[in-house]
Amino acid sequence: MRLKDLNKLHLDGIKEAANIGSGHAATALSQMMGKSIMVSVPEVKVLKLEEVPYIFGEKTPVVAAVLTNFFGDITGRNLLVFPEDKARLLVDILLAKNPGETVGFGEMEISSLKEIANIVSSSYLSAISEFLGIMVLPSVPSFTLDDLAAVLTSVYLQFTDEDDREYAFCVETSFYFTEEAVKLEGYLLMIPDKMGLERMLKSLGLL
């Protein structure tokens, strides 16, 4: 299977699985934060490797990003991304501070964002596992605060299969907290390896 040969049926199947995953992830995050959350319909993207820096658009701001590998019946990674200013607001909520109180990212701030990623990734993956009848487990999360383009290209180039680097695949979900004065949004990318993607499609009866 080649990424560019994926058809609409394949993409819709993955989208359905992702939808279940992101729904559970949003519920878990909402409970953890005590805030209501709106989650988008997942978008399945197949793009040329050169387009990877612009997955979210032409602008590549500084973002707080947490990467989690997953393994088991499927392998791949989840990347949780918050614009830098939104990440600080999120930490304010999580650590029960006043809005604007968090200025930088020390150990405490980083570990709370990793905790969020952990909850989001685990619930996303466990819902997908259940839906597809497979086993998937997340690794420990890894944090960085950097230019979005550098983060995205590094994620793709460092981890994806050497022989499949013409096209990039991801499932993007965005979400936001509905009650905040400032729109507080985040993005989740699920990036299965090619083998992982094939396994998902097989479980869906599409391959």
Partner: peptide, 17 residues
């Protein structure tokens, strides 16, 4: 040529960067 998320790499010494 940086190496991000090194702790998640199987083999950081041969990272793409």
């Amino acid at each position: 040529g940086s190496v991000m998320f090194a702790q998640l790499l199987k083999n950081p010494d041969s990272a793409i960067g």
